[in-house]
Design a protein around this nucleic acid. Structure first.
Lengths: 336, 336
DNA sequence: ACCTAAAATGGAACCGGTTCCAATAATATT
DNA sequence: AATATTATTGGAACCGGTTCCATTTTAGGT
């Protein structure tokens, strides 16, 4: 591997000159420029990123910590971040918090520290797996962080999240607008903040319209297909009748529809179903799924840009408002 | 940030001693060990990975180039690789070939070179977006590569792929075993090798059983939900009747089922459907999807380990055989 | 032609680790 | 007690860039 000194020697100039043509800063005569470029070409020279990082103290790498990234929605979000970083030649590395935290409570912090040790210039903390207090502590000694899908008042300008409460409310209101008053619910994972918020928003919408929902019509899910399927079966079996079902996400909505269909009932004729997320498949189910779309892409981009601004003193424009949008398809019937 | 010299000074020893306790190699007296550990603790010392990389010429990073990584199956595969690497404290970075190659044919090679420039110790080339010749050329000057989902005879020991032909054959045979002889097909993306192979395998199974498939019953898809839906609609509309449908992947199978259902027909009573991939949702559809499962995880792990062996002189065990397995659920009816 | 300002240049010093070796201390041998 | 081994130690040199400054060239002004 050729070094900058090899290039300088071959070009017959000093290393300073080579460095100048490399960075484009400082002045270089056109003859020198030519010779250096030829030498670099001839030696197939590539600057060592390790040496660069050593002096610049920038790794051109940012880390992502937290949420499981294998679900479709999170993958889509990730995708946005990756393409946002591509322009800056910054790479992403992962440390999956969940993976370890289940085994060992301290492990989550350890996997986070790994990212720092690795030398990430900044870290996106995704989700609320880390206690707020701990995040504040981290932020204190390592300020280059951004929170995605989490809100901490004291560092609100580094937080990017949306109003799941409002989105949940939207769903509840929609079912009511369509004339439903016997409404069942398969919740998201209530252990997570967002699962809780969308549930509360949903409940509030019902409450504001004076419809209340008996215990029997509430099934606590966890966002998985499995729980969606089981939940629907369980709701169908208990006595209370219902005409509409709100699911904490599209995955559980889809498997709930499958369960309902497999039980010989029809969606939306017998039971209306509304989901949450607007997955790609939502347009291609039977019936196409009414759901709520959340601008993950814009949110992810803003969180990423905010971090870039912090790490590299940039001033990319960012945004803090990400309103949800109801996507009406054919899984909710108007029975008013 | 504390450096090794700070630690040495505080501990009252030389930097060599600190380096020795860091690496665990060479002998250090117990007193020195204690003092150094205390000093490191006191200064909250973390060795600079950039400085380490500079001298060791190892970045502890490997790159992935090629396939779009946002689909469920690919993401699952990726997940396996990440967790395999976690144990070695090696990180993964991406360079999405597809993203650019569509715009500019040279861009794919450029994005590949970026990975090398970044200093990856090795690279997994995923898929067949790069011509074999070019890969051989690359391998020649940068031998630390491994191919995933691609086969090149000359470097077969670095290739990890499965026999899509065999898996496609399995699907075709299964439909025939169930008594079907009017069989339609929504292919995968025939531009890709694997899409082609599974199609050829499927065709061979039919051929070996003397059932032939008229042009009208072939619809060329591209793995997307959209094409699955459109394909099913189109097949339904043309005159030729059929009782079974093979889809190039589960995504198109699922949307094909939705289309069939939306048209008032039933799966599997009117039409049997078989998919390919065994996505998570496949157990939770209506009806649950018969499909073929491919051991992506084992394949990904082997490809990763092979690369680790190459990069870091390890001798992890690897595997080259990844047979497909038919998962029979309820979307295929026996009409024999 | 002469003087001054601006452009261009070379290279020492540094970033923070690892490697290696000569020097010293500790332990064993006779 | 003297000598031979072996264990431990400190630090110079190096990895390959960037930064910075003293010095040399070139261009501009009169």
């Amino acid at each position: 591997m050729a070094t900058i000194r090899d290039v300088a020697r071959l070009a017959g100039v000093g290393i300073g000159t080579v460095s100048r043509v490399l960075s484009g800063k400082g002045s270089v005569s056109s003859k020198a420029l030519l010779k250096v470029n030829q030498a670099m070409e001839a030696l197939n020279y590539t600057p060592s990123s390790a040496a660069r990082s050593l002096v610049s103290k920038k790794m051109n790498t940012i880390g992502i910590w937290g949420t499981e990234t294998s679900g479709e929605i999170n993958r889509r979000t990730l995708r946005e971040m990756e393409s946002e970083l591509k322009d800056f030649e910054i790479h992403l590395i992962f440390a999956d918090g969940n993976l370890n935290s289940s085994k060992n409570p301290n492990a989550s912090r350890q996997s986070f520290d790994k990212l720092i040790n690795k030398g990430c210039d900044g870290i996106i903390i995704w989700g609320s797996d880390l206690p707020a207090l701990e995040i504040l502590q981290i932020e204190n000694e390592f300020p280059n962080i951004t929170l995605l899908n989490n809100k901490i008042e004291l560092i609100d300008d580094k937080c990017f999240y949306f109003d799941h409460y409002q989105a949940g409310y939207l769903c509840g209101q929609h079912l009511i607008d369509k004339g439903h008053s016997n409404i069942a619910c398969i919740t998201g994972w209530l252990v997570t903040d967002d699962g809780n918020q969308r549930h509360q928003g949903f409940l509030s919408a019902l409450n504001d319209n004076n419809v209340n929902i008996p215990k029997e019509l509430l099934f606590e899910g966890d966002y998985t297909y499995r729980k969606g399927y089981e939940g629907a079966l369980s709701l169908l079996k208990q006595g209370q009748p219902f005409t509409a079902l709100f699911c904490g996400n599209d995955q559980s909505a889809m498997s709930a529809i499958a369960a309902i269909t497999n039980e010989g009932l029809q969606v939306p004729n017998d039971i209306s179903v509304i989901g949450y997320d607007d997955m790609n498949i939502a347009s291609y189910t039977s019936p196409p799924l009414t759901t709520v779309r959340i601008p993950f892409n814009r949110m992810a981009i803003s969180a990423t840009r905010r971090l870039l601004n912090l790490c590299y003193n940039l001033e990319l424009s960012i945004d803090y408002d990400f309103p949800a949008q109801l996507i009406e398809r054919r899984s909710v019937k108007n029975i008013g």
